[in-house]
Amino acid sequence: MNYARKPEPHFEIPIVNIGDIAFLLIIFFILTSTFMRESYIKLKPPASPDVQRVKDSPVSVSVDNKGQIWLQGTECQLTSLESGLNALLQDKTDKIVMLKIDKGLVQSQFGPVMVAISNVGGDVMLVGGEGSGK
């Protein structure tokens, strides 16, 4: 007898929705990601339980664990720091300079940097982490 063959059932998992969710998540991560600037500068920030959340400033000065000064991620000497900051801050109303200093440095190393920032009329924003610090 010639029976009519039943068509084989076709199984498939609908993945269109998964793709939608994945793309939504990608868009979220693209928009929220801030790729760490100046990650090549080797410095360990200090910590204090008294820190507060602050907004990032477009002008940054870093002093790494060897006492090397970095202005906007570029190596810089103390003598040229003031002129460099002057050029960056001259057209800004909010003259805030984000200052990142390695926790191991001593006052004689970071003090002149603060003085240089003050000489150009900038406000210093000291950056550190949350925690007891010890």
């Binding site: 760490m36 820190v51 406000d123 000291l126």
Partner: peptide, 25 residues
């Protein structure tokens, strides 16, 4: 899409800047 997703999940660090402002005239 999932490869990109994994990349972003692994590389994203939600950094929060903490510190305080000092006025040094």
């Amino acid at each position: 899409a999932f490869l990109l997703l994994v990349f972003f999940i692994l590389t994203t660090t939600f950094t929060k800047t903490s510190g305080n402002k000092l006025k040094i005239p």
